[in-house]
Amino acid sequence: MSNAKPALVELRFELNGKDVAVECEPQQTLSEVLRNRLNLTGAKISCEVQVCGACTVLVDGLPVSSCTYLAYEARGRRVTSIEGLENADRTLHPIQQCFIDEFAFQCGFCTPGMILSAKALLDDNPEPTDDEIIHHMDGNLCRCTGYVPIVKAIRKAAAVMKEARG
């Protein structure tokens, strides 16, 4: 194995609406950069094989597994982490509020990933059927809730967001 450390990657991207610049090593994942370098620990690390979705963040609006997604890939892109969902006035995003209202989490470890995955769904398909919610969310695991409250929360968030659009 070579001990020479490969060249650092200069990363510039938009994170939660603000430009960030950070250097990272090529093998570092987006979750490592978010959690260790930028101190945003909302993305959780669990399965590390792209099955559970706890580490989900949005890149250009699409959900990716940040635990196995190279930070290098975020160059010039728009990254949304759970920390970016609250509004400037500290009110919660409707999906966040509906997760609270519907008791859609217990331990909370899957929750940031669940909420971001749900956001990707509702941004793309504002009025999903239950089947569409389940199909989209099927790659996010939760061991606490039995999923039913999460489906309810997403359904309710869709309704709240629809009403807000008028």
Binding site: E83, I100, F103, G108
Partner: peptide
Amino acid sequence: PRRDGRAKVSGRALYVS
């Protein structure tokens, strides 16, 4: 509503990790 709700939906709940 859960006492830990806001912390957990906003990614601020602190775990040992």
